[in-house]
Structures are given as C-alpha cells and as structure tokens.
Simulated assay, not measured.
Amino acid sequence: MSVLIAAAALPCGLLIGLLLGALGGGGSVLAVPALVYLMGQSPHEATAGALVVVAVGAVSGLLCHARAGRVRWAAGATFGALGTAGSFAGSRWSAALDPGVLMAAFSVLMLVVAAGMVTRGTRKSERADAEAGSENRSENASKNRSENGSETTAKESPPRAHPARLRDAVCLREATRLRQAVRRSSSGRPTGPHISRTSPAPRPRPLRTIVTASAVGLLTGFFGVGGGFVVVPALTLVLGLEMPIAVGTSLLVILINSGVALATRAGTGSLDWPLLATLAACAAVGSHLGNRLAGHLRPRTLTTSFAALVAVLALAMAATTLTGL
C-alpha cells in the first residue's frame, strides 16, 4: 500500500464512518466507489473489500445496540441464516459478471439508495411535525380547560344531579358494556367503541420469510453492501419488529450475510488487507464520531445532502461505465 493510497484511505474511511454513525446506515455504499476510483481497486476487488468495511461497521454498531437491549438475537440469527444461500449465490454471480456491467448495476443501486433516503427523511419529518402539532393542541386544550375551570369556580356552582339519576346512569352504562361484551364473544372480534387500535403482530409465514431473507443475502453478496435500507423494512414487515429493535437486529443480519459473502469471495482473488484494515479502522472511528454528532445536526438536512452526494456519484459512475462499454 503506497503512501498516496493510505492518504486517500484515511479521509474516505472517516467519511464513511461519519455517515454510518450519523445516519444509521447507507454510508457503506460509498466504499465501492472510493475503492475503485480513489484507490485503484478493480470492481470485483472493491465489492469484495467493501464487505470488510461493512462487517466492521456492523460489529461496532451491534455492540452499541446490544448494550441498549435493541437486538433480538434469535430472530436476527434465524433471518441471517436463511439468507446465507442468497449471499453465497450473489457472491458467485458478482464474481462471474463483467466489471463494467457490475459498476453500471451498482450505480443503479446508489440511485435507489438516494431515493429511499430522501423518502425516509421526508416521512420522519412529517411524523415529527404531526407529533409536535398534537402536543401543541393538547397543551392549548389543557390551558383552555384550566381557564374554563377557574371561571366556573368563580361563578355559581351548577346544581348536582339527583343520586337516583346517577344510579340509573351507571346501571345503563354497565348494561351497555355487557351487551358489547356478548357481541364480541359471539362474533370473535371487538365491536363498538372499545376496538383496539394496536395492530396485531403479523402471522409467521415461513415461505415469505425465506424469500425475503434470501433476497437480502443476494443483495449483500452481489454488491458488497450491508443493505440496511432493505433489511430494516424487511424485519419490520415480515417479523413484526418495532423500528428501534429492527435497526439493532438488522446489524446482526448484515454481519452474518457479509461474513458469508466474504468467505465465499476469499478464494476468488487477492484482497489488499492493509488497505482494507486502514479503511475499516477509520470507518470505526468515524462511526463513533458520527454517533456523537448526530444529536447536533439536523437529520433531514444531513440525509438530503448525503442523498444528493450519492445521486451525483451514481450519475458520474453510470456515465463513465456506459462510455467504456
């Protein structure tokens, strides 16, 4: 590894780690372009070497989420094990593909990642605005109630209801609840105003789980990326995990898939281990710094800027690759 390549690996690794730590995923997609265009690696070597960076980033993030209790080890290990066949097939397929076609496909993947990050950032911003609006409305309602309560106490107190009327109202309410319970037990589902708003957990579908896990493994093995933008929604929709749990568990799935893909590619060509070790170490340091900076930056601005950078790089890669075909 020359001095110039080492000098290029330091800022690239830090940038990848910063994005991983600040955004929680997506930064590893920059590892392949950096290895190809800045460090002189071939597309096959780059997609294989990027798995080292992905694995190191997954380990560091997994430790943080595990300490916070946001990892479902059994579910993640099962989902990752089901994706090993897809990871093996994707690695073999990528190694046999023409380098130009591989880079053209990777540029398409980068555009998909950029669009997905913009969509996810927009949804998070809309959700945050809706929550802030509901909080403001509840605060205004409580203020109005307190003001109306103070005015009512200042005035003459309203007449109290007769005890017999209160007893009749209670009996009527209890009879209504009893009729609703009878209807629920006979129909098998809740009716009336007591319908539960919590969505039930999805029923386990083995075939759907196997297909989804294999597709995730195929993506990791073929492109050499973690695929967190696919793993997290898959764990949420297929296994019914909550979003924070899905994010932490996805790192276990990524670690398993990247490990299988790296072991599959180990015999297909030589890897520059000193270069990859330097890049991965810088990415680990940058991920730690990104976690600290995440609370001081506007998430939507950071996500939009990163998506724009990925889109520009994807278009440049596509133009370079298509002219060389």
Rank of each mutant, 00 (worst) to 15 (best):
I5E: 13
I5L: 13
A9H: 02
L10E: 07
G13E: 04
G17S: 02
G24R: 10
P33H: 13
E45G: 13
L51N: 00
L51D: 00
L51G: 05
L51Y: 01
A55R: 06
V56C: 14
G57I: 02
G57Q: 06
A58K: 00
G61Y: 07
H65Y: 15
G69Q: 04
R72F: 05
A77T: 10
A77G: 01
A89D: 04
S91M: 13
F106A: 00
A114E: 10
A115F: 13
V118Q: 14
R120T: 13
K124R: 11
A130S: 05
R137F: 12
R145G: 04
E156G: 03
P159E: 10
R160D: 12
A164Q: 08
D168E: 09
D168H: 05
V170P: 00
A175D: 14
T176S: 12
R177M: 07
L178P: 01
A181H: 10
R183T: 13
G192T: 11
P193D: 15
S196E: 08
P200C: 03
P204F: 15
L219W: 08
T220M: 11
T220G: 12
G221Q: 07
V225C: 04
G227N: 02
F229L: 11
V231H: 02
V232H: 07
P233S: 00
A234K: 11
A234C: 06
P244A: 13
T249S: 03
V260L: 08
A261W: 06
A266G: 06
G267R: 15
G269F: 07
L271M: 12
A277Y: 00
A283M: 07
G286R: 02
R292E: 08
A294V: 12
R300Y: 04
L302P: 06
T303W: 07
V310D: 08
L322M: 05
